Amino acid sequence: MWLMFFNRTQLSEKWSIHNEIQDRSYDISHKEEQLLLRFGINYHIKKNLWLTAGFGYIESYPPEGVARPTLIEHRIWQQVLHTHFLGRVVVEHRGRLEQRFVGDQYRDRVRYRFMATVPITRERMAPKTFFATAYDEIFFHFEDTPYDRNRLYVAAGYQFSRAVSVQSGWLAQNFSGKTKGYLQLGVFANILQPDK
């Protein structure tokens, strides 16, 4: 199970801060797999086009019965995020570069995520709207073989207001030749500027 909290605090029309906490478990029993803390600064080129740069701190814990220490990763990351509409569907493209300091190793990684969100109870995404969302994200690195992993996600959610939404779904992650499923629960609570 992955428990996730995301926050965007808008500072001005062009600038905002990104914060997130993810508590990832091996299974429903909540045996910890990973803790991820990520922070970033967003620059809004347009309403639907953002650039972000930030830092992440990740602790990865060994599975039960495996005798190895917790692995610490420090991660610098940059991304571009672009959204647009296809009819009622909100489409999001996210490209991300990562410079990863994993234990005593350094690795570069690139990620691309394609996401689509469909409002169910309204014509457009708005407060008091149930919605469905899905994405596929592929990861590549530059060392060894390029393919790192792929994540496929489907979920349902509810948009309470402009600033607050929740979603829960299922993520299938393919990594090292195996695919494992995770139940996810995400809360998005933003501090936004009032509509003008």
Rank of each mutant, 00 (worst) to 15 (best):
W2R: 10
M4K: 11
N7H: 12
K14A: 11
D23H: 08
Y26S: 07
H30S: 13
E32T: 14
L37G: 09
I41P: 03
Y43H: 09
I45A: 10
K46I: 06
N48D: 08
N48Q: 07
W50N: 12
L51S: 02
T52R: 11
T52P: 00
G56C: 08
I58R: 10
S60K: 15
Y61V: 00
E64M: 06
G65S: 05
A67L: 10
R68M: 13
R68Y: 05
T70C: 06
H74D: 08
R75W: 00
I76S: 00
V80I: 15
V80Y: 01
L81R: 12
L81T: 14
V90L: 14
E92H: 08
E92I: 09
E92S: 06
E98S: 01
Q99E: 12
F101A: 06
V102W: 07
Y106E: 07
Y106M: 01
D108A: 06
Y112F: 04
R113N: 01
F114Q: 09
T117N: 00
P119D: 04
R122H: 15
R124H: 12
M125K: 12
A126Y: 11
P127M: 03
K128N: 06
T129H: 03
T129L: 02
F130H: 13
A132D: 10
A132W: 07
A132V: 12
T133N: 13
D136I: 09
D136V: 12
F139P: 01
H141R: 15
E143Q: 15
E143G: 11
D144V: 03
N150C: 11
V154Q: 08
A155N: 05
A156N: 03
F160S: 00
F160L: 02
A163G: 11
Q167G: 02
S168W: 04
L171F: 05
A172K: 09
F175K: 11
T179H: 00
G181E: 04
Y182T: 06
L183F: 15
F188N: 08
A189Q: 05
N190E: 03
N190P: 01
Q193L: 15
D195I: 12
